[in-house]
């Protein structure tokens, strides 16, 4: 699929408008507070647009589509959990109200008031380690999307993404958060248009009754294949045999529109032939009678905790992660800290919450539709895996003009995420790693120069790490595990520090160290297993590592604080009155 002049015009107008708006905001930057938190001038709907645009990047769309490709709509379970977590936090003000009232620029700055400068520095280091590594795969996956959507030659991937990053750096370095907010608003609109139109097209191509029927059959075929491979004994205790029979998926000589009722009834599917229109049944029937190609499997498409689903442990881990993300993830919290007051921050959360369902469910829909499409085609093309199947599918679906809009939408998603993340991590390095080490505060001009230089340096790191690093497994696993390096420990510090008077710096230090042990042990043990499987037969499931991280961090905080109470009696009962006092001054 190649771009037409109309497509190029749409992309060009978007890029020029966006960069011009971003550069224009430079005139309002007078100091670090304007640069890092937009002078705390952000109102509700600008906050909604900025939060949504920042947290929906191309990488988000790629990994959520991959979850849809492997697990159907059930792959969007995290989207529902994160929306629930965000709404509840927006309703109660849990963590975000005291944090905004403290008047800080970053989360670690809050820790200094409670646990001392050492904990602030250590927390800043952990945030940077988890956050920058997490961001490491953004550029490459953004480029891969373009490669598979518009047929961008692979050799141009690096130079294209470097040029895109240069545009982002231009306005982020000049205008900071003020530029990020205005460009996020424009990117929210372009991205929203692309997502809505693509979702409608996907549902037009694969109507919902066909979609559900095909995914159910695919799951039954997967169960049957696994049963044949491993025998019933490995399916788990107390589980019944699958209702699908392998022979019901095998080839038949009946024509497609006749084969469907026969195949569905023998496979035990709830969908019936009459529920599907003549047109759609003719276009999708071949999948009914085709076995699943190699490398294509479908988990339980609707029930995440049902047979063949993601499992209770996984859902519990994702629920903990969702709560930790909405209260601890610095790029999300940056919008809380840039809000005019805590009431505005809570309203932003409540009004953005449901957007996070679509953030997983809509690209997940595209991914699941891609599964059905490639099943009909007899398998994935060479060089296309579960992560890259969705953009390749969209390339066959989108007509002229809409392809240009989709490219502009994905560039918007990539740019808004990159700019928000670049600024956030640069602010943490400046505010929590460098400034605590400086005895005499430099001038406003020097401080602005430092933070702008840090944005450029992180951009350079991204070019070299992000474009040359090869992803070893599922994108979502990589993102959650690197994110967990800091999510578990900092979530524990925030909850303990804000709501448990006994918490002290010994407990906080123990929580930071133990919280990182789970994700790091996951990375090391699984690396050893992949390296020498005979000597290291065990692997750690990501949900076990993730839940262990939260358990270890909370245990570290509780035990460490109780032990610390013996040595630091004067810190017991210290609360956030200090922080509130700072704000009122």
């Amino acid at each position: 699929m190649t771009l037409t002049p109309l497509d190029w015009a749409i992309i060009g107008v978007y890029l020029i408008g966006c960069v011009a708006a971003g550069v224009w905001m430079k005139r309002y930057v007078r100091g670090v507070e304007d640069f890092a938190v937009a002078g705390r001038e952000m109102d509700v709907y600008l906050g909604v647009a900025s939060l949504a645009a920042t947290e929906v990047g191309v990488v988000t769309i790629m990994y959520t589509a991959e979850m849809g490709f492997t697990n159907g709509p059930a792959g969007a379970t995290y989207g529902v959990l994160s929306a629930l977590a965000m709404f509840l936090v927006g309703l109660t003000g849990f963590v975000i109200t005291p944090m905004r009232n403290a008047g800080v620029m970053t989360i670690p700055e809050l820790f200094e008031k409670r646990f001392g400068v050492g904990v602030r520095w250590l927390a800043g280091l952990v945030i940077i380690l988890g956050g920058v590594l997490n961001m490491g795969i953004f550029l490459r996956l953004g480029g891969e999307f373009l490669v598979h959507l518009i047929g961008l030659p692979q050799q141009y991937l690096e130079v294209t993404m470097t040029a895109l990053l240069a545009l982002v750096l231009l306005y982020t370095v000049l205008g900071g958060m003020l530029s990020v907010l205005v460009t996020d608003y424009l990117q929210f609109l372009v991205m929203g248009m692309g997502i809505v139109i693509t979702s409608v097209l996907v549902l037009w191509h694969t109507p919902w009754p066909v979609f559900t029927q095909q995914l159910t059959l695919a799951h039954q075929a997967t169960s049957a294949a696994q049963e044949q491979e491993t025998g019933l004994g490995s399916l788990g205790s107390g589980e019944s045999a699958p209702s699908a029979k392998p022979q019901s998926i095998s080839a038949t000589t009946a024509p497609p529109h006749q084969a469907q009722p026969q195949a569905t009834s023998s496979a035990g599917s709830a969908a019936t032939g009459t529920a599907v229109s003549q047109k759609s049944s003719e276009t999708t029937d071949p999948a009914v009678v085709k076995p699943l190609p190699k490398g294509m499997k479908m988990g339980n498409p609707f029930n995440p905790v049902g047979r063949g689903g993601l499992g209770w442990m996984w859902v519990l881990w994702q629920a903990m992660t969702a709560l930790a993300v909405v209260t601890t993830w610095q790029t999300t919290i940056a919008r809380v800290l840039a809000a005019r007051d805590s009431k505005t921050a809570k309203r932003i959360y409540r009004r953005t919450a449901f957007y996070f369902v679509g953030r997983f469910a809509l690209p997940g829909l595209w991914g699941a539709a891609a599964f059905i499409y490639f099943w009909q085609q007899g398998g994935l093309p060479e060089g296309v895996d579960t992560l890259r199947a969705m953009p390749r599918f969209l390339a066959t679906l989108l007509p002229m003009g809409l392809l240009g809009l989709m490219v502009a939408a994905m560039l918007a998603a990539e740019m808004s995420t990159d700019s928000g993340y670049l600024l956030t991590w640069a602010t943490v390095i400046y505010n929590d790693l460098l400034m605590p080490l400086v005895r005499r505060k430099p001038s406003e001009k020097t401080r602005l120069l430092i933070i702008r230089s840090l944005v450029v340096l992180i951009g350079l790191f991204l070019v070299f790490y992000g474009l040359w690093y090869q992803l070893p497994g599922k994108a979502w696993d990589y993102l959650v595990v690197t994110g967990n390096i800091y999510l578990a420990s900092l979530f524990t510090l925030l909850v303990g520090g804000l709501y448990w008077p006994t918490a002290n710096r010994i407990g906080a230090t123990a929580a930071i160290i133990l919280g990182a042990v789970g994700p790091l042990s996951f990375l090391i043990v699984n690396f050893l297993h992949d390296w020498k499987p005979d000597q290291f037969p065990w692997k750690i499931a990501p949900e076990i590592a993730g839940l262990a991280a939260f358990g270890c961090a909370f245990a570290g905080m509780i035990v460490g604080s109780l032990v610390g109470r013996l040595f630091l009696p004067n810190t017991v009962g210290q609360d956030w009155s200090l922080a509130r006092k700072d704000e009122s001054q």
Binding site: Y185, F188, G192
Partner: peptide, 10 residues
């Protein structure tokens, strides 16, 4: 949200 946030955010 395209229209509502589009108008209010602008």
């Amino acid at each position: 949200l395209l229209f509502y946030v589009g108008f209010k955010g602008g």
